[in-house]
């Protein structure tokens, strides 16, 4: 099982994703330069966080035109798994692979802190291995994470069980107080209709090791690995 982590100019969580997939989860993982036009032998693609192209103009808006994004689209059209994290989520929205947009945090400031996530559905390759009822504690770090879409889209996302994560308080309640950026319905992550493309603002790769006092983010990668190869046993 091989992973590819995209590398745009300005990506800065690319190494973190490679580290977790390769050294923590133990799978071969390659960086994929933005000028490449195929994803090679990758079984899953991670679009990492950072400030691709400096996030000039609008977050993710330039990265979507990179040659590699054409390859990712083709890969996803054929059912390949794609996970976008933070800036990666923004890029997937800009590329039209996920609905909606991530706009400026309502605080108008960058926010870096640990948040609690309620898992809204276990029916996805990205959440299937998360124990039911588990409240996830994972950091966020973004200035534009305020998820927005029109009412019809939101209805469709909700009706089709496509919300993956919602910001919650420590009791697991979805409250406005627990919403760090103003996202509609406290949305922290969603998937596409076919359920093979996901985007999330929180950083599971920063919460996957006991050395950092964090383990919850691992569950996202374990889910992905299990979905790619149901026979695999994850630690």
């Amino acid at each position: 099982m091989n992973f590819a982590v995209l590398q745009f100019p300005g990506s800065n969580c690319d190494q973190d994703c490679v580290h977790v997939l390769r050294n923590v989860m133990g799978y071969p993982t390659q960086l994929l330069w933005h000028k490449e036009n195929n994803v090679g032998d990758a079984d899953a693609v991670v679009v990492p966080g950072g400030f691709s192209y400096g996030d000039y103009l609008r977050t993710g808006s330039i990265a979507r035109f990179s040659p590699v994004m054409g390859a990712v689209k083709e890969f996803a059209d054929n059912g390949g798994f794609v996970l976008g994290i933070c800036n990666g989520f923004q890029i997937l929205c800009e590329a039209g692979l996920l609905p909606g947009a991530l706009i400026r945090n309502r605080s108008l400031q960058f926010r870096c802190e640990h948040v609690y996530l309620k898992v809204a559905t276990y029916n996805s390759p990205f959440t299937s291995q998360i124990p039911e009822g588990k409240l996830m504690r994972i950091p966020i770090a973004h200035g534009e994470g305020n998820y927005f879409c029109d009412a019809n889209t939101l209805d469709e996302i909700e009706a089709n069980d496509r919300i993956l994560f919602q910001y919650a308080d420590r009791e697991g309640d979805i409250t406005d107080h627990a919403n760090p950026n103003g996202s509609l319905k406290n949305i922290a992550g969603i998937c596409n209709a076919e359920r093979n493309i996901a985007g999330m603002m929180p950083h599971p790769e920063r919460a996957a090791e006991s050395a950092l006092n964090e383990k919850d983010g691992r569950l996202v990668f374990e889910s992905l690995i299990q979905s790619l190869n149901p026979a695999s046993t994850t630690a």
Binding site: N12, C13, Q15, D16, H19, V20, G49, Q109, F110, R111, C112, E113, P139, A141, H203, E205, R206, A208, E209, A211, L212, N213
Partner: peptide, 14 residues
Amino acid sequence: VYRQYDHMVRANTM
């Protein structure tokens, strides 16, 4: 102040 700084990127902050 520090909530405006990304203090965890590079996944090394203990």
